[in-house]
């Protein structure tokens, strides 16, 4: 009796999970199969598999989007921004946690309070700042902007993480004659590895998928990110679903591949960031 109940329960749960999975994947799968069709075929039947694989859709969008260049731009931007965020906030987060003064409490509050400011209210002033500093159209400059926007959250996380690391190791290092900077790089930073992974992942995703900021700061199409190139293509082929869908797949591809390779790390990183924060 119990056994039978369990089988029914099993079937029920699996059916539920299966349907949910189907639902989750449906936009991607539909975009994928239809991106290989001709426009006419697509209009006739959206649900069928393509009669033959029309790779020329991809060939065209690949060229139109300047895919490789856009990809490299985005990758460069994401890696540099993340590096800046990690370095800046690890330094700050560690010291903020280890120093117990009025100043440290003030600084921590200062960093954290802005996390709820809506982006729309800083957009135009921020753009003006990038002009004044002459970093418009510069991916390096944009990376520093991302650092400015991203440090709050990262400092918050580092600060929380350092709390749980025993002080003794650092103290031992400084007694051994390490300068604070040496202590940081040789002793502390390696210990921050789990939370650093989290911060890298969540920030890389944010920057990779961000649209509004690059749209305003980058006007030179040689420096376009993937989303900007995709967006330009939408404007050019707004009535051609095959072009749009193949562009969507191409734009989503890098993150999906990245996810396929590192999914365990990514999922763990997300959990650490959320539960410990």
């Amino acid at each position: 009796m119990v056994g039978k109940n369990k089988t029914i329960g099993n079937i029920f749960v699996y059916a539920f999970l299966f349907i949910a999975a189907l639902f989750t994947l449906s936009p991607l799968v539909l975009a994928l199969i239809n991106s290989f069709k001709t426009n006419r075929e697509l209009l006739v039947n959206v649900m069928s598999l393509p009669d033959e694989l029309h790779f020329e859709n991809y060939q065209r969008t690949f060229e139109k989007m300047n895919y490789l260049r856009s990809f490299l731009n985005t990758a460069f931007l994401a890696v540099l921004s993340v590096a800046l965020i990690v370095l800046f906030s690890a330094l700050a987060g560690w010291r903020l946690c280890r120093t117990k003064t009025k100043l440290s409490r003030f600084l921590l509050k200062l960093f954290i309070f802005s996390m709820l400011i809506p982006f729309s209210s800083i957009m135009i002033p921020l753009y003006k700042v990038t002009l004044q500093l002459k970093i418009k159209n510069s991916l390096v400059g944009l990376a520093f902007v991302y650092a400015g926007l991203g440090v709050s959250m990262a400092i918050f996380l580092y600060n929380g993480f350092v709390k749980n690391i025993p002080k003794e190791i650092e103290e031992a290092a400084s007694i051994d004659g390490c300068s604070p900077l040496q202590t940081f790089f040789l002793v502390v930073f390696p210990m921050l590895k789990p939370i650093t992974a989290t911060i890298c992942i969540s920030n890389a995703l944010w920057i990779w998928n961000d649209f509004l900021l690059p749209l305003i700061v980058i006007s030179d199409n040689k420096k376009y990110t993937l989303l900007l190139s995709t967006n330009t293509l939408f404007g050019q082929y707004s009535s051609d679903w095959t072009a749009i869908l193949s562009a969507l797949i191409l734009a989503a591809l890098p993150v999906i591949i990245f996810y396929a390779f590192f999914q365990k790390k990514i999922l763990k990183g997300i959990v650490d960031g959320s539960l410990k924060g």
Binding site: L131, K134, N137, S138, V140, F144, D220
Partner: peptide
Amino acid sequence: LLTMAACAPSTPKETKDPG
């Protein structure tokens, strides 16, 4: 990368920046 970042902004700006 960081050192690259430190040196890089000055170069592209002067030659290419259409601002």
